[in-house]
Computed example of a mutant assay.
Amino acid sequence: MWGCSLSLSLCSRLRKRRSTVLDAISYMLYKHEPEQMTEEEMHAELCYAEVLLQMAALSFVEDESMIGFIKAGLKMRTSYLTFKECETLLDKGKDNDAHNHFVGGVNMGIGSFNLMLSLFPARILRLLEFVGFSGNREVGLSHLRHGAATNSLRSILSAFTLLMFNIYITVILGTGECNLAEAEALLKPYTLKFPKVRQLTHSAAND
């Protein structure tokens, strides 16, 4: 948690500053047109959302009280809204490697949120949608597939999330049949890039 706090502090210093406290609150509560941000500010915004999500997950584990649950929920909501803000900036950056990493991160974040929330029962999902979340499975899978296809820093995270969903979550929760064809397609570029890992996997399976 200490490392996350330091990361959050760094991201906060690099994010685009609001002129006043009221402007910051207004920006969080109401929809605005996408802002003009530098490339550094865009990446700081994305990293801020990712760190907040990590802190929310750790808070759920560390503090099981009701207050801790509420704090973690607020962090998760802020993280989700920040990811949504980053989504509005996808067409604002330059076509270069740095922006490609930004696009991959946004796809991973939006996709993971939608896929994760879509697994909740319908009653809980309606409540979550009421407080600002969305849980559309097809949207989530689409974002994750796009993120996995890009050659970005977070593409492997998108691929791993899809793998977990296709070969584990669908079976455990009984939400559908596992998609082995997609799982193999996701693994193929990594087995070609790291052939020794493939050999170890086959050896472990044979043992």
Rank of each mutant, 00 (worst) to 15 (best):
V171T: 09
E138K: 14
Y190R: 12
S142P: 02
F160W: 02
G174L: 03
N151M: 04
L187Y: 08
H146W: 04
L163Q: 03
L186C: 12
A148K: 07
G174R: 08
T150H: 01
E138V: 07
L157Y: 14
L163I: 15
H146C: 13
T175N: 10
S155M: 00
L200Y: 06
T201D: 03
N166F: 06
S203H: 10
G176S: 15
I172R: 14
T201Y: 04
R198G: 09
V139A: 05
E177Q: 08
N151C: 06
F160N: 02
S155G: 11
G135A: 13
R154D: 04
L144G: 06
R145W: 03
G140C: 08
G147R: 08
T201F: 11
L200C: 02
A185Y: 03
T150L: 15
L163N: 08
N136D: 15
G140A: 06
L153K: 11
G174C: 11
V171N: 06
Y168E: 12
A159N: 09
I167R: 13
N166P: 02
L186V: 07
R137A: 10
Y190I: 08
T191G: 00
R198I: 01
E138Y: 04
S134K: 14
N166K: 05
L173R: 13
A185E: 14
E177S: 13
E138W: 02
Q199R: 05
L144T: 07
A159I: 14
L144Y: 06
K196S: 05
F194Q: 10
N166E: 15
L173N: 02
N179P: 05
N179K: 10
T150G: 01
H202T: 09
I156Q: 01
I172P: 00
F133L: 05
A149E: 15
V171S: 09
A149M: 11
S158H: 02
L180P: 00
E177A: 11
S158N: 05
N151K: 13
G174Y: 11
N136V: 13
S134N: 13
H202W: 03
G135N: 05
Y190Q: 04
A183T: 12
L144W: 08
N166H: 11
L200G: 01
I169S: 11
H143G: 01
V171M: 01
L187R: 15
K193A: 15
K196P: 01
R198V: 05
S155K: 04
S158T: 03
S158M: 02
A181H: 06
F160H: 08
E177F: 04
T150Q: 08
F160D: 03
A185Q: 09
F194E: 09
N151V: 02
S142N: 15
L162M: 11
T175A: 01
F160M: 01
T170D: 06
M164W: 01
G140N: 09
G174H: 05
I167E: 14
S158D: 02
I156S: 06
P195E: 08
Q199N: 05
T175E: 09
L162H: 09
L163R: 09
L144M: 06
V139T: 15
S152P: 05
